[in-house]
Nucleic acid binder design. Structure first.
Lengths: 119, 119
DNA sequence: GTAGCCCTTGGAGTGCGCTCCAACGCAACC
DNA sequence: GGTTGCGTTGGAGCGCACTCCAAGGGCTAC
């Protein structure tokens, strides 16, 4: 069990963002210590790391809250969750393809500069 | 020479965005017809397509305006422009690597759902 | 000449994802 | 018991990249 400061340091999110994520329902209500301070367990940290992966691959916050809601609703939402992840996966694949394509254009332009062919 | 509507259609940007890009100095003042309407030439369209590539690879608007400013200043800024593009290229490569890495995590999770291993 | 349409402008508004703030609480240490 | 330090809350503010709006101008068709 770690405080919000440590949870922030471990996940790379800010303490403000952790509180924000809780507010919008991305994280289930975190347990509190005697002073009312949040205490994050291993499960919380793993969930946060997973959320961060979704976020860093461009999933929108509202989709993430939808996914989180499904998780909370229990095992009968597995198929829906799987479908969400698969749809997102396809978007990530497409994004990688787009970046790779534009990268060649960028490389081509850089080569022109290197050859002194640009004015 | 095409009007703003056609330029928007061809580049995939909106007419509003084209005017916005001009306002912030991303595009040099576009020539106008008798009625004061913008007319985009081939060179303008090629420049817009290049801007769009930078944008779609995650370059920030203010970096793009910096690049545009260098182009306007003439040939003696070639080295600076090349450096900007190379730095951006490195970011794109890093971004692709990150996406690819997170993609495996996503695939792993999807496989768990497929095997019925998730609750 | 008037209706319809597309364009112009400056400026305000929007949605996203945080980020910051003031006011306060509690616990520990001197 | 005062100070320090870390946390709490609700709500306001921010930066980005557009996006929309009202008011108006000019061309074309009828």
């Amino acid at each position: 069990m770690v405080g919000i400061r440590d949870a922030a340091a471990r996940t790379g999110l800010s303490a403000d963002t952790l509180r924000y994520y809780e507010r919008i329902g991305l994280i289930e209500d975190v347990t509190r210590d005697g002073a009312g301070h949040r205490q994050y367990g291993d499960q919380d940290l793993r969930w946060l790391e997973f959320l961060l992966k979704l976020r860093r691959t461009g999933m929108h916050i509202h989709q993430m809250t939808a996914y989180a809601r499904l998780v909370r609703q229990g095992p009968h939402t597995q198929a829906a969750r799987q479908a969400m992840l698969e749809a997102h996966r396809d978007e990530v694949v497409a994004r990688i393809a787009e970046l790779t394509e534009h990268l060649s254009a960028l490389d081509y332009k850089i080569a022109l500069y290197r050859d002194g062919g640009m004015t």
